[in-house]
Deep mutational scan, measured.
Amino acid sequence: MVQKSRNGGVYPGPSGEKKLKVGFVGLDPGAPDSTRDGALLIAGSEAPKRGSILSKPRAGGAGAGKPPKRNAFYRKLQNFLYNVLERPRGWAFIYHAYVFLLVFSCLVLSVFSTIKEYEKSSEGALYILEIVTIVVFGVEYFVRIWAAGCCCRYRGWRGRLKFARKPFCVIDIMVLIASIAVLAAGSQGNVFATSALRSLRFLQILRMIRMDRRGGTWKLLGSVVYAHSKELVTAWYIGFLCLILASFLVYLAEKGENDHFDTYADALWWGLITLTTIGYGDKYPQTWNGRLLAATFTLIGVSFFALPAGILGSGFALKVQEQHRQKHFEKRRNPAAGLIQSAWRFYATNLSRTDLHSTWQYYERTVTVPMYSSQTQTYGASRLIPPLNQLELLRNLKSKSGLAFRKDPPPEPSPSKGSPCRGPLCGCCPGRSSQKVSLKDRVFSSPRGVAAKGKGSPQAQTVRRSPSADQSLEDSPSKVPKSWSFGDRSRARQAFRIKGAASRQNSEEASL
């Protein structure tokens, strides 16, 4: 019999049943779409005989028809080659250093092939080196495509196609095609072959870009420019304004007297070369007005044109410092986490200390709560409330009815002989401070409620009492009544008793 458990639990079988086999339907690529829901599959020993999904071999995947050992070796080799080519560490840098020397040698020989004295001697060596480079780069490109299958997102032919569309893979295939075209054109020995050789060798310069396949330098440059984009835009904007204004004023001053400034384009060329401190010297002002304007705008514009270099330099320094700090933080993070875990385990398992309490023990206690009866409008029989619902239920009951529930009420002091009981919340009678006064009792026990209740009776009109401690106690149990005489010590004692009862009640409510 096959059962599914969608909550991750395992159904224990009877003692008479045989052992169960467990598997996940959602992990089987050969299962139909209706059953690939991630549910837990529990099947008996007879299920494989019936041809269940556990008995079927995997229909898809890279190692579907391969033995386990061969499949493990296949995956291990794939991961190894992918890490060597895409994430070089340790001795893997030897291969990348060899590729760099190969590319650099091709670049140097290409430069010498353009010089007439070394053209014949360098062409033969360059031809052999180009063949070696094409073979190495071609094999490396196909190995990269194959090894990318170790990543989940690059599996299958669609994943390989996605990997081949990456920018550096596109550069690799462009350089490979250009190198093959250069060799094919150079072997023909005609004029067209020579011109094609010179034009296609430009694409071989892109080999130097592939040295940084992970794009660390470009990411660093982009992060620095993005972090200081506002400062760079401000400096370039002001420098551009200085360039336009200086070129226009010098053009007006030199026009008609200097042949170097016949057009405004000549003035812009002079301004750009001057403000960037290049100074070719092919154009320069000759009149005193033009020289004065050139000197003034040079002092202003050079500072703004040189400002981005300082901004980028400081940004690079701060970014490198931040990377070093992050690297040290990552080195200290795992030991710190292990130290915290060890300290907590020692703290939680220390049996010699009796003052340690688990944080979840508070929620494991069961509280007896009286249940409210809507018919009699009273609190009758009580029941046990689950631990997770205790706090919310108690808050709702307290807010609606005004009752305070507590588990172990402390012993109440008995009323003394000299001070009789003053009210239901005086704190001297046991069992009276455990409940709050309802809204109805407060209204009818207050002086205003009594006056409103007995407004029509003649006794209420004739008998008038001065405010005393009895009425103030019933009005607000948490307030201290004001004494009408300064020498009345009994009223002071009563006030301290009320304060103590109120503080105890607040602490009990907070504990609930």
Rank of each mutant, 00 (worst) to 15 (best):
A306P: 00
N79K: 12
A294G: 06
C169F: 01
L388F: 07
R201H: 00
M1V: 03
I209T: 14
A185T: 10
W269L: 10
A294V: 11
H228Q: 01
W344R: 11
T217I: 11
E254D: 02
L200P: 15
Q188K: 02
L101H: 05
A343S: 10
A337G: 03
T194I: 15
T287N: 10
A306V: 03
R213W: 14
D259G: 08
L206P: 05
N190S: 13
D355V: 01
V250G: 06
R210H: 15
Y154D: 01
T217N: 13
T217P: 15
R214P: 15
P335A: 11
D212G: 14
K162R: 02
D259Y: 08
S122L: 11
L243V: 13
R333Q: 05
N350I: 07
L197P: 15
Y284D: 07
I273M: 07
V320I: 11
N350H: 08
P430S: 08
A309V: 09
K230M: 12
F329S: 09
K283R: 02
T276N: 01
T378I: 05
T234P: 08
M1T: 04
I273N: 03
F261C: 02
L268F: 01
K255R: 09
A265V: 05
A147P: 06
G315R: 10
R353G: 06
Y237C: 12
N258S: 04
A265P: 06
L81P: 05
A178V: 14
K230Q: 11
R291S: 04
G418V: 09
S195P: 00
A193V: 14
L351F: 03
H228Y: 10
A193D: 00
W360C: 07
R353H: 08
A62V: 05
C242G: 09
R333W: 07
S358F: 04
T359A: 13
H260P: 07
T114I: 08
S199R: 02
M1K: 04
L268P: 03
S247P: 05
N350K: 08
R214W: 07
H260Y: 09
E130K: 13
L339Q: 06
F104S: 09
D172G: 11
P285L: 04
L243F: 04
A253T: 13
Y127C: 14
N190H: 12
R198Q: 00
H96N: 03
L292P: 10
T296P: 13
T349I: 07
G271V: 09
S55C: 02
V175L: 00
T114A: 11
R210C: 01
G313E: 00
R213Q: 14
L339R: 05
G8S: 01
L351V: 07
V225I: 10
G159R: 06
A306T: 00
Y284C: 01
F248S: 13
L107F: 07
I311N: 06
L356R: 09
T276I: 08
G239R: 00
E231Q: 08
A196V: 14
L203P: 15
M211R: 14
A267T: 14
D212E: 15
D259N: 10
K283E: 02
I340M: 10
V182M: 13
L221R: 04
Q204H: 10
D266G: 08
P420L: 04
F261I: 02
P386S: 03
V225F: 12
S314P: 06
G9D: 02
L318V: 00
K219N: 13
A317T: 00
L312S: 01
A253S: 12
D355E: 03
A185G: 12
R144Q: 00
L293P: 09
Y362C: 09
R207W: 15
R210P: 15
S113F: 15
M208V: 14
F304S: 11
A337V: 03
P411L: 02
G189V: 10
T263A: 11
R214Q: 03
M211V: 02
L85R: 04
L307P: 05
V250A: 04
N258Y: 07
V250L: 05
S352P: 01
Y280C: 06
G301S: 01
I238L: 08
I205V: 14
Q204R: 12
D266E: 12
T263I: 12
E119G: 13
A265T: 04
G159V: 06
S342L: 12
L356V: 09
T277S: 06
E322G: 05
H96P: 15
G159E: 12
R325G: 13
